[in-house]
Design a protein around this nucleic acid. Structure first.
Lengths: 209, 209
DNA sequence: CGGTGTGAATGCTTTCACAGCC
DNA sequence: GGCTGTGAAAGCATTCACACCG
């Protein structure tokens, strides 16, 4: 098996999510094409990277295929074992809205701690896990051995906070701010600011000749 | 000028954002490489698609380059003209957190209306623009001629709501839910659920051999 | 020199097309 | 007959390498 190309990896993540919603028991590559717009041969190629040998020729078994993708990507969505604990940094309106582990049900992720510069906010907000002042970030992240952070601080603090996270051992950052943050190699960032998303949409809409 | 490749387009959007943060007046492709991890020749190639002829050989003028990117992508960040009006659908904790146009300052986007199935929420939440019950979605979206929507409804309503948006003329959807939504060709979706982002990070972290 | 801009080469990704299987 | 899985071809994106410029 060749190594999984990055675009294929991202499609497979979405495909796994699509399969969890799927009501039917079987699905064919052209049904997936209709749902996603990706060509059926591309989908078959993506699936072939999983070396998932299903045997039958009349489509994929939805549950089996999803399991094969999760298995291959290491994203078993068990609720019990192999949980990845994450922190949220910045508990403004947006950060506070994400303090809700029901968003992560049936995934291997759990929010286990939040940080904010305002002690007022860490004390007023209710959650099932601790909320600490920013000053305890380094200590807590390294003690808990966290690898993932959700960054919801304001633009002007984004780089500084990201660096502190990286220095404490964080390997992946979900960046909700518009700021572009620099991280050393081996650390990854997913930029999901609504502004970036709207700009990308706008360019794509304009570009459809 | 050849047409802009999709990966280059996405990098340029991020580059424009990076340039807005940049403190220096000049920047070279290898400074950008250090900040972003993209190779300097790739950056020069991306910029060459703009047919931006800057003249000098000791780096790019930050402001000029940013203007050239925005111009070429049609994302002038004026606050006055050519504003794209957007709606938010679903005013739970997350949707309500985005009802804040200060998130979109210095961009051509403005939230101009919100919708929720709960009349209670549309009446209790405060905002500078109207909040309506979901039943008024079609009428309002087509009356206002909106092209962009931010979708924050729960998973089980995502597809149905997206279809209603598309039928009302929406061309681009920022999807905050985990649900994968199907749209006809000519309509675009950006999936930015925190769950998807974490999964992608987790796969990339695991894959760094 | 220390930089850009760009043909040409390389390396990836996607599509084509068809054998093989149920 | 309809679908998968996959070599081989085609099409894209990235890197190389170097002419050229201030």
């Amino acid at each position: 098996m060749k190594t999984l190309p990055a675009p294929a990896q991202r499609r497979l993540v979405l495909l796994a999510q699509l399969l969890s919603q799927q009501k039917t028991r079987k699905i064919t590559s052209s049904m997936i094409e209709n749902l996603t717009g990706w060509s059926s041969s591309l989908i078959r190629r993506d699936i072939s990277f999983l070396n998932f040998t299903h045997g039958v020729s009349n489509g994929y078994d939805v549950a089996e295929l999803r399991a094969a993708i999760c298995d291959s990507l290491g994203i078993e969505n068990t609720d019990t074992e192999d949980i990845r604990r994450c922190c949220i940094v910045g508990l403004g309106r947006l950060g506070a809205a994400l303090l809700d582990n029901s968003l992560f049900s049936e995934t291997p992720f759990r929010i286990t701690v939040g940080f904010d510069s305002s002690v007022n906010r860490t004390e007023v907000l209710r959650s099932t896990f601790p909320l600490y002042p920013l000053s305890r970030l380094e200590l807590t992240v390294s003690d808990m051995g966290l690898q993932f952070a959700i960054l919801c601080v304001k633009e002007d603090l984004a780089q500084e906070t990201a660096s502190r996270l990286v220095n404490s051992g964080i390997l992946g950052i979900v960046n909700y701010s518009r700021a572009i943050i620099s991280v050393p190699s081996g650390v990854f960032v997913e930029n999901i600011s609504p502004v970036t998303a709207l700009i990308n949409l706008s360019v794509r809409v304009a570009g459809r000749d």
